[in-house]
Design a protein around this nucleic acid. Structure first.
Lengths: 175, 175
DNA sequence: ATTATCTATAGATCTATAGATAATGC
DNA sequence: ATTATCTATAGATCTATAGATAATGC
């Protein structure tokens, strides 16, 4: 209810967003044009403007939905294994790597702060309420995902071991 | 010598790269067009193609130079404070935040692996040769920088404390 | 001779608006 | 009446090439 564009009211708007998501994930951000998006839904580009005021509102709605989904994934991981930073990190990684372009789109955006905080709440609990450590751990997870997505690790690198090392570093009791 | 585009031979090519760097850093990636770049150097767009085969070679050369610079910064930090992960992390952060657009450009690229490894060598030494931990620590630093650059932390967040928490987590002796 | 440059332009895009037309809901 | 859609198009871009012209180096 906060933002009409971010929370589509009509079926058509939802259908457009679903198509945008598929298009972005399949062909990357450059493919997400109003023309191609319209084509996916079976209408012409100008008709999109009856449902979204402009392109950025479509993009914003995609990012918003993705962040909500991430929050849900983390909440589920917490429910399954309360207090486990490892479980949260694994769930985060899995979800992010499953949606590379959406992940990049979302993390490249400035989103409502309460949404972000809600998503990070399980992490806050897992790390015993240490804010600074929560942010550092979040940055670690984000950095790992981005580097995996962008192929920044050497092909023979043991990425799982790197995740494990980071998880151990943050989960361990403070010295 | 590896790549002619990445290591410009002529003064003009170097001048073009310098202008590209300034343009990118001042106005962001969308401003970096062949026309605008040519304008900065005082020539027309087609003339650029006498010096670079295409736009991507210009971009690649920028990323290459930035990564070399990062390697230099880390090496200098190591020389000043051998074996200190904190010193490396601080130097990395400072350099990255001083060149936001270049940093994003560079980290969004796949670069020659030996270059990346050379840049990471001081980190490897500081973390006592633990490869997995080096990668995790690198991801942490990268994640922190990206989140700072993209304004992903709450305005009242103590970012320095987050850096300190991550540095402590990785620098501490293993349990 | 060779090189750097220019003008002109091909060939593709894009986002977004204006105004007409068809379809739906009262 | 209102809404969704279409066609047509404005108005901006972009990258990159072709071919002519000026300037440089032998």
């Amino acid at each position: 209810m906060t933002d009409p564009a971010a929370r589509p009211a009509t079926d058509r708007a939802r259908q457009i967003l679903a198509a945008a998501r598929t298009l972005l994930e399949r062909e990357g951000p450059d493919a997400l044009t109003m023309r191609r998006l319209a084509g996916c839904v079976g209408i012409t580009a100008p008709s999109l403007y009856k449902h979204f005021p402009d392109k950025s509102s479509v993009v914003h709605a995609l990012a918003d939905a993705m962040l909500r989904e991430t929050a849900g994934v983390l909440a589920a991981a917490e429910a399954a294994a309360p207090g486990s930073f490892r479980a949260l990190a694994t769930a985060y990684r899995t979800h992010a790597l499953a949606h590379p372009h959406l992940y990049r789109l979302t993390t490249g955006h400035r989103l409502p702060q309460d949404l972000e905080e809600r998503a990070a709440a399980p992490l806050f609990r897992a790390l015993a309420g240490d804010e600074a450590r929560v942010r550092a751990a979040w940055a670690f997870a984000h950095g790992m995902v981005v580097m995996e997505l962008n192929g920044r690790f050497a092909t023979d690198a043991d990425v799982a071991a790197a995740w494990a090392a980071g998880i151990a570093a943050f989960a361990s009791v403070r010295l």
